[in-house]
Design a protein around this nucleic acid. Structure first.
Lengths: 182, 182
DNA sequence: TAGATTGTTAATCGATTAACAATC
DNA sequence: TAGATTGTTAATCGATTAACAATC
């Protein structure tokens, strides 16, 4: 955002203010990854952005498949925003492969998953199936060679040597309810 | 889950194992909210569940409106799972109120939001509009009387006296990328 | 009674904060 | 040079862990 506004430098105290942190926290955290500031000046916005992109691994591109063409699966497939960050959705898989997708993405049968993963080697599989089938589907994907899962099902997936990030939406809703009552 | 399996009691060490915590953590945390265990026995599953529901505020019902009928808004509207926890989606609002919803929920024009909120007093508004319009839409909702926001837009909403819970999906995807590279 | 497991205290650990010398 | 702000050390704080008396 700073880059878009044409702002060239930024201080730890400014960053802290805009993210509800302390300046110390910001500097300590950056320092863990190197020294990319300059005393008396602050951080160069472009440099800082690039360093953070490097740290996060967002300088690469990632190919993504979505498992499940229900509400969430279709919503993610339809949302183009991730592409900007380098995540490209390549295909959607579902048991019922006759559902129509609105955006020209291939909708494939779950039966063709093994073949697809073997050939295309997608980087990330999104688990967008109902909770009951989530483990089974994730297990398949992992067995076929997927090394990274973005999980929207409300279960704790865990496989050796596989990266998992969870979006536990109902947990978040529970936290909202808690906040409303305290 | 334990209740559904007909299991009557559970120990802090069992809970710890299934959630990747330590038994001490589980007991310390529970103890902050009261004493609902029994030495030498453990925790009564039903009692524990009820205590947690009470702590979270999930013994009440909440009425929910969804602002934005795009991919995410429609996905949330179509997903019935939150109902089970007491969150009932009442209506969806969008600028273009001619989009069709598949599930019989009323799709209303954003212009009718003020009137609706005044009359129906929904507990929670879901922000499911694009990032650019998210602040504006949230501000409206809050001005009209909404006290609680479940935010799916990638901006940090903050209003005095309003509860906010964020689902920052792209942040989660960045974390996944980070994990893949470390 | 013996075994199990809580509630709770004390010890340990790590993260946050404060402070400041280095330096642009 | 004077002002600003980093990188980094030391002090503070809070959370996690370990331990155990209480007690079912």
């Amino acid at each position: 955002m700073l880059e878009e506004k044409g702002i060239l430098k930024v201080s730890s105290s400014f960053l802290a203010r805009s993210m509800n942190l302390t300046a110390s926290q910001v500097r300590q955290d950056f320092c863990n990854f190197g020294e990319f500031g300059q005393q008396g000046y602050g951080y160069d916005v472009i440099r800082l952005k690039n360093e953070i992109l490097k740290i996060l691994g967002l300088t690469k591109r990632y190919s993504v498949i979505i498992l499940g063409a229900g509400n969430i699966g279709r919503a993610l497939a339809g949302y183009g925003g991730f592409l900007r960050d380098g995540f490209e959705v390549k295909a959607v898989f579902d048991e019922k492969s006759d559902i129509e997708l609105e955006n020209g993405l291939p909708l494939l049968s779950m039966d063709s998953l093994q073949e697809y993963v073997k050939q295309e080697k997608p980087d990330i599989a999104v688990i967008a199936v109902p909770g009951q089938s989530a483990y089974e589907v994730a297990k398949k994907a992992v067995d076929f060679g997927i090394k990274s899962l973005w999980n929207f099902a409300p279960i704790d997936l865990k496989f050796d040597g596989v990266c998992v990030e969870n979006i536990f939406m109902s947990d978040s809703l529970y936290v909202l309810a808690y906040k409303m009552n305290h």
